[in-house]
Design a protein around this nucleic acid. Sequence first.
DNA 1: CACGAAACTTGCGCGCGCGCAAGTTTGCGT
DNA 2: ACGCAAACTTGCGCGCGCGCAAGTTTCGTG
Lengths: 198, 198
Amino acid sequence: MTGLRERKKEATRVALREAALRLALEHGPANVRVDDIAEAAGVSPRTYNNYFSSREEAIVAAVTADRESRIAAAVTERLPETRLAAAIIDAIAEQYTDPGEQSRDALLLITTNPGLRTAFLDAPAALEDPLEEVIATRIGDPQTARVLAASVAAAVRVALEQWTQPAGNGLVVVSGSLPELVRRMLEPLVPALDAAEA
Amino acid sequence: MTGLRERKKEATRVALREAALRLALEHGPANVRVDDIAEAAGVSPRTYNNYFSSREEAIVAAVTADRESRIAAAVTERLPETRLAAAIIDAIAEQYTDPGEQSRDALLLITTNPGLRTAFLDAPAALEDPLEEVIATRIGDPQTARVLAASVAAAVRVALEQWTQPAGNGLVVVSGSLPELVRRMLEPLVPALDAAEA
DNA sequence: CACGAAACTTGCGCGCGCGCAAGTTTGCGT
DNA sequence: ACGCAAACTTGCGCGCGCGCAAGTTTCGTG
């Protein structure tokens, strides 16, 4: 049951992040103040900061939505019938499949602007808590669960880092699709996940 | 050979962080503005932000010094004759042994104040780059090295988190010395490090 | 030694993040 | 239906973070 309170709250959250993305695409990220976003969403600037703790956060939230919580749900879903490592890797890779379409130019915007890129790379940190919980249900020790969850989140961040970098240096370009990149970066952690599960 | 330039730079860096810590201990962290720190160190407030990117950073730097780079050095030192996992764990645990004495009250200050605590927990992120480099010399794939370095840094952060929390909840208290806690948190990653080395 | 490039410092100004206290809205029990 | 408590919004003010451009110091080179 969702009360009026929660519905309104979610509405302004959505309004804020969509306004943020639209304005950033129209005028460029540098030319958008939080006052503009707040005004476009019909709330006070102060309220903006009750929802998002930085100017960039709303913009990346528009493209990220609530991916982190969906990942946790996806892991829980496959857990009963799968090994821990496979469940985690598949679930994460799935949630990072290209939604393509409208978010293409948004992602270009993010990878271009340094501030947005940083906010984008910080997003997977939100994986830690839900992942810890779901890992803890599988293995005994909650402390081990915490470490593994943090490591998985870190690996995802590294994957996004690589994917974001246009290379440009003199070394090998990673390229490939994001889901495959995520899988490759999570691979080194498989032995640790297996060992914890045994 | 160290030029005058670098010596001066290091001098003001030290002056800033020591002033920051002293003032924070004297008046409480909330009652210290960066203007105060800058003035006490004899530089302009603007210069402060050329050295530290937040008000808290200087304070934790006073107690952390350059622990991260020393860790990297310590790992390199034992690498030839030891397995990767052991080298990393021993080196990190060593660098987190209690320097006791004067930094006792400083650490209490940090764990008390939420802002300082956050800055303190962010510190091990600086491990990633040097660790990646040293791991990459041991194993082939630089991407795997990156992931493992990030995971180790994450595990260290988790250890500091636990150590910082006064528990207070209803669950098991971790307690024990910090080096032992660090070892325990790094243990789950050993299989991953072993597998990468093989 | 002289001098030009490079590194570093500093004042200025703008926008952000957030604590606080007052006002407004929603929810819930009676 | 009423009213109170809890949740949420908002204006205000302070300090911070940082880009920019001008001034100052250090470094290498002829």
